Amino acid sequence: MRVLLVEDDVALAHELAALLRSENFAVDIADNGEDGLHLGDTENYDAAVLDLGLPLIDGISVLNGWRAAHRDFPVLILTARDTWSDKVAGFKAGADDYLAKPFMPPEVVMRLRALVRRSSGFATNRITCGPLGHDTQTGAFDLNGEPLRLTAFEWRILSALILRKEVTVDRGALIEHVYEHNADTDSNSIEVIVGRLRRKIGAEMIVTVRGHGYRLTAGGR
């Protein structure tokens, strides 16, 4: 999963980014509203964490800009503004969740996972595809009931595939789920990671759709 974090408090932004990366998220950081608006409008994200009191462009204007541009990724507002009117303004602008400061950082992780799950059309925390299971609340994967050990990149790709199980996911879209903005990517890296995943969960579960991408399937079709 790839998340955009728009927060002008540098210490808090780095604390949250470190936490999210430790939970296998790819994270891009913007420390002002102008950069946040641009990144959200030009990059593909699974979710965004957005402060309201931002320099250059305020958070509500950023969110209005994203929604006007039909950017529909879920947005968690994270702000010191906790009045009812602030919350109403946030939800009217298109926010999906609202968390007031101070907060427990692990709660941000749990809320983001829930937002991504619901935006992908799943009502419950557990998603299965044949023998493969994924607990979206903890982020854990299992195969035939046994825990799977995955690298961060493997986790990001498998998360993207299981949230779109039985649907072909474009190779370019997978790259966007794995790498952060301006990362130095190797043209064959996705194939290498998919190859490792096939060895861990079974080659028949990840189908290559030539000219398009990959599909996670329970039937190996």
Rank of each mutant, 00 (worst) to 15 (best):
G213T: 01
E34T: 06
Y179K: 09
L150F: 08
V27G: 07
V209Q: 05
K165A: 12
L143N: 10
E107V: 11
V178Q: 05
E154P: 11
D9W: 05
F25T: 10
A140S: 15
R71H: 00
V6A: 03
A100S: 14
R126H: 12
G139L: 00
A69M: 01
R221K: 14
I190T: 10
P147V: 05
R149K: 13
A30G: 03
S120A: 15
R210C: 04
D35N: 12
G33Y: 00
R67H: 05
E154T: 04
G139C: 02
T168I: 11
L174M: 03
H14G: 08
P74I: 07
R198S: 12
A26W: 11
R81N: 12
V207L: 11
S61E: 11
R210V: 05
F91E: 06
L161T: 00
V75R: 07
S85C: 05
A30N: 03
V192M: 12
P55L: 06
I60D: 00
I175S: 15
E107M: 12
T136D: 06
L12I: 07
L132R: 08
V75K: 08
N125L: 13
S120M: 01
P147N: 07
G90Q: 03
R126E: 13
L54N: 02
I127Y: 08
L56W: 03
E34D: 13
V194A: 04
E180R: 14
N24G: 07
G195F: 04
P74Q: 04
C129D: 08
A48W: 03
T128V: 12
D46L: 09
M205Q: 15
D96G: 15
D135V: 09
F103P: 10
S119P: 05
L174P: 01
G220F: 04
T168W: 01
T168S: 14
L5R: 07
G33K: 00
D82V: 03
N44H: 15
M1N: 08
L163W: 02
I60N: 08
L150A: 09
I206E: 03
R67T: 02
A123N: 13
K165F: 05
W155C: 10
L56D: 09
V49L: 04
